[in-house]
Design a protein around this nucleic acid. Structure first.
Lengths: 345, 345
DNA sequence: TTGTATGCGTTATCAG
DNA sequence: CTGATAACGCATACAA
């Protein structure tokens, strides 16, 4: 037995309901919502009244199906607990929100396999564009990414062979530059600590190595890393490890990010090691705490929010069939010199 | 003129394409995907082969439309740059991901009006459940939230009159307890600094006030706040303000969160104020940096990840028509006493 | 400016 | 276990 067509309590309100109430056809209601300028003032207000009084909310699924426009952008990031990605996300949300796109976000947990599954999920929502992290996708993933035929931006790092568009900066170069800077400051025994060891951290470490090797100052035991996530605590532990490994002979440490750097600094203070007199500490990402701690930490600024904005804008421009200046954008970075790497005369 | 039906390059692959290739009907393919146990082994593998070879990805919009099950959960949080919310998010994503739900996330920028708009957006995606922050919704928003007839969890705070379900803790009580603790430690002139001043910070401040008033130690100029976002920097500034206001007579400060507390601590160090000898500092949220800085900061632990998990689980239980123990859950909190509020003998 | 017919890709319902 | 048919709610194409 069917329930009464109109007044049944649970029934969701549809375009047709609104049309009936307003005494127009469904398509007119549709127009009032999507192209109001194509409807006469009289009808428009009349329909709008019906919409309001019924509390009508359009069904996006039906809309997407009919129009093959989902207004959804998929975003895949490796972690929600890393400020690096949430900053980028903010930029993406800002731009996409303004432009009327919904963001469907997935967390890949730094795993290409998980990423493949998650991107499948994204694709099943018929996103009009995709923003994904790095270039570490599985073969299978790359394949259906190609087939998707939608604009895709790979963010965070500079990729040699992007799937489509690319916004990021060179972590290798940044690692190199930081180390070179430390060398230029007169530091000679420069250690490195890193955690998680995702591709980008590896690249920074590679840059560090190159710089030291080039200067003839590279030593294997200058490095301590862990596959565990980054944290202040891990920074302290890694710091102790590398100091032990080197019998405390290091005079500088390059930390793969600011959390580690804070941990190293706090631990150094507990060990009564004077920073920067006895030891220089350099972080990465230029987070707020690093800038305000005593002594303030030298770090590497990266325009993360701006990177998110840029990626989002590129997608939108392509979707609106505008040209884009370039499919590959280097956001660069800036080494922020602070007290922690400044020898006291 | 129509393009060739099958091989046209841009055509997306549909259920029918797979059915044709496998030599079965569309509904069988649908079953292979959604209820594999209802299809014979032979057909199932045959269909699966077709799916793989075509790289078929189901269209969720069509599926949602036909089944009125979207497998989407909407989440609204006030900010993406506050670790408090990203921690909760992690919990939500973890559980929802496992259970096969997509999460549609929106950022309300701490604005009820924006929240109303954003929740409209969420609703247009026919989510099966909603997780929203706090109880500060507009009247209009509350109304269509009611009409949505889906499970809704309001998180972060304990609400007197929740729309549906509620998971959180009492910020008022927490603020009170922290202050009482400080009093019990023998501190007498206890200041408060807060930023953003969203409802939850206001509640903490209210608790602080109550405790001081009750002890007869409340003074208006013990308080410095700003509507600006919280940050380490803001913490330093507010600290300077409140110290100026009170001519440096405070012997303790309760900071509305750990960022502010770190800022206050760093600033105190620069001013050569000894913490905790001259001044106690207490934070809120028990973040990692607060626990590892020197001296370690007393703070209030809150199970944020667990709160996200709980909220997600409640939604899922309701959706799967299980009973839930209670619609209202108090997650509680724990005051973590550390060096920053311990007078040296 | 407004309306009619049709189809988007999938699933519910009911038959076989 | 498998299939035919009719929705789901909306937008496109075309007509009026």
């Amino acid at each position: 037995m069917k329930i009464a067509k109109k007044d049944s309590i649970n029934k969701k309100i549809t375009l047709t309901d609104v049309a009936d109430l307003a005494g127009v056809s469904a398509i007119t209601v549709s127009r009032v919502i999507n192209q109001p300028e194509k409807v006469s003032d009289a009808l428009r207000t009349q329909v709008q009244k019906a919409i309001d009084s019924l509390g009508y909310i359009p069904n996006q699924h039906a809309s997407s199906l009919a129009s093959s426009r989902s207004r959804v952008i998929g975003v895949a990031i490796p972690s929600l607990s890393n400020i690096v990605f949430t900053d980028v996300l903010r930029g993406i949300y800002e731009v996409m929100g303004q432009a009327g796109y919904k963001v469907l976000l997935v967390d890949t947990h730094y795993s290409p396999l998980e990423e493949e599954r998650m991107i499948r999920t994204l694709l099943s929502q018929s996103p009009e564009g995709l923003i994904i992290t790095g270039g570490d996708q599985t073969k299978a993933c790359q394949q259906f990414l190609q087939k998707a035929r939608i604009p895709i931006v790979q963010i965070m790092e500079l990729l040699p062979d992007p799937i489509d568009m690319n916004v990021g900066f060179s972590h290798t170069k940044a690692g190199y530059d930081v180390t070179a800077h430390l060398l230029a400051q007169g530091y000679e025994r420069i250690g490195f600590i890193g955690a998680r060891m995702d591709p980008r951290v590896q690249q920074r470490m590679q840059g560090y190595k190159s710089a030291l090797e080039q200067a003839g100052k590279y030593e294997k035991n200058y490095i301590a890393t862990t596959p565990e996530p980054s944290s202040v605590c891990a920074g302290g532990e890694l710091f102790k490890s590398v100091m032990a490994l080197t019998n405390g002979t290091l005079d500088a440490i390059f930390c793969a990010n600011d959390d580690l750097a804070l941990g190293a600094l706090f631990e150094a203070q507990r060990m009564n090691i004077n920073v920067p007199k006895d030891l220089a500490i350099c972080g990465f990402n230029d987070t707020e705490a690093a800038a305000y701690v005593n002594p303030s930490l030298t770090s590497v600024y990266v325009g993360r929010y701006e990177m998110g904005v840029k990626a989002a804008e590129m997608i939108i421009r392509v979707l609106e069939e505008h040209d884009i200046e370039s499919k590959h954008v280097d956001m660069g970075y800036i080494i922020r010199e602070r007290a922690s790497t400044q020898r006291l005369a």
